[in-house]
Structure formats: C-alpha cells, structure tokens
Amino acid sequence: MEIVSKQEGKAQVLLVKGRMDAVTAPEFEEYVNSCTAKGATAFVVDLGGLEYISSAGLRSILASAKKLKALNGKILFCGLQGMVKEVFDISGFASMFSVFPTAQDALQKV
C-alpha cells in the first residue's frame, strides 16, 4: 500500500494505492494519526488506486473515523471502484460515510 498526501485548501487529500490487507492496513490509521498530530482534521480519502481491501482495512478506516469524530474532524471518501466498492457496499461503509465520485466533488463538501 502507498499513501500520497496533498493539501487542498483546508483538507488533506490522501491518495491510497495498492492493497489494504491484514499486514498493511494499520499503516492507514498510523498515517491519519500522524496528520492529526500536525493539526489536520479534514480528510478526503481517494481510493481510486486501491485494488484490494479486507476487513482489516475497514477496521483501520473505522478506527481513524472514530478518532476524527472525537476531534470534530471529517473524513470523506471518493474514487471507490471494483471490489473496494463492493466491500464498502456490503459492510454498510458506503452509507455510513460520505462517499463521492471524485476528489473534486468531495472537496466541495469539506
């Protein structure tokens, strides 16, 4: 898994690529933690380059979202496709979170 981060206005856009599995998933939570430690509270997570996610990935995302909620922060998602979209739909994450087609769409709602 690879995470590329860029600042867009007040939001931190995270481009997540590759595989979020039992081994790599904790890296997502750690990355979000490192951003919040520097003061970031608004995140747009672009999963367009993510090819694979398991429940370990969902766990890492939910743990991050709970922490952000406690900080009055925000986490929005975009770019879901393929099996990642399926897993978001089945698990209810697609309705629990705000999901947008593109990062541009999400940034308008931050």
């Binding site: 979202a65 698990s91 629990m96």
Partner: peptide, 15 residues
C-alpha cells in the same frame, strides 16, 4: 449503525 455506534471489527466473516 453510525460511526459512533459501530464496534471495531467483526466484519470479516460477514464479508
């Protein structure tokens, strides 16, 4: 459930 209400974990077997 919402982000607040949902427990961490327990989704694997469901998937």
């Amino acid at each position: 459930l919402s982000v607040d209400e949902r427990a961490i974990g327990g989704l694997g077997i469901f998937l």
